[in-house]
Computed example of a mutant assay.
Amino acid sequence: MAPDVYKVLFENDRVRLIEARLQPGATTAMHHHRDNLVYNLADGKVAFTDESGETIEVSLAAGEALWFPAVDHSTHNTGSTEVHSLLFELK
């Protein structure tokens, strides 16, 4: 994963906790996430593009939790604020 965006805060044999910070306009290359729960620390807008090229845009709200199944995707911060989230990846 992109070390300028993702920072592992905790990891054991069952879960990995990752802090994500993506600046406005920034993107990440295609990468993989296991099944994960995302908790948003700030409002933001992001576009996810999967391996097939399909893109979905998501509005993120501070305090909101979202579930995502395992996926390979790239990410683009399409908003004007930093995307700041915690990802809890299941192993």
Rank of each mutant, 00 (worst) to 15 (best):
M1K: 14
M1F: 15
P3V: 09
D4T: 14
D4S: 12
V8R: 03
N12F: 04
N12Y: 05
D13E: 14
D13K: 05
R14Q: 12
V15T: 12
A20N: 04
A20H: 03
A20S: 10
R21T: 10
G25R: 02
A26D: 13
T27R: 14
T28S: 10
T28Q: 02
T28K: 04
A29I: 01
A29N: 13
M30V: 10
M30D: 14
M30I: 08
H32I: 10
H32L: 08
H32E: 13
H32N: 10
H33W: 14
R34V: 04
D35Y: 08
D35G: 06
L37F: 00
L37W: 02
V38N: 04
A42S: 11
D43L: 00
A47C: 01
F48E: 05
F48H: 03
T49Y: 02
E51D: 15
E51K: 15
S52Y: 00
G53H: 05
E54L: 09
E57I: 02
E57P: 03
V58S: 03
A61Q: 10
A62F: 13
G63N: 03
W67T: 02
W67C: 02
W67E: 01
F68A: 11
F68V: 06
P69L: 04
A70D: 09
V71L: 08
D72V: 10
D72Y: 09
H73I: 03
S74I: 12
T75A: 14
T75E: 15
N77Y: 12
T78D: 07
G79F: 08
S80G: 05
T81V: 14
T81G: 11
E82C: 09
V83R: 07
H84I: 00
S85L: 00
L86S: 01
L86R: 00
L87T: 06
E89V: 13
E89R: 07
E89W: 08
L90G: 00
L90K: 03
K91T: 11
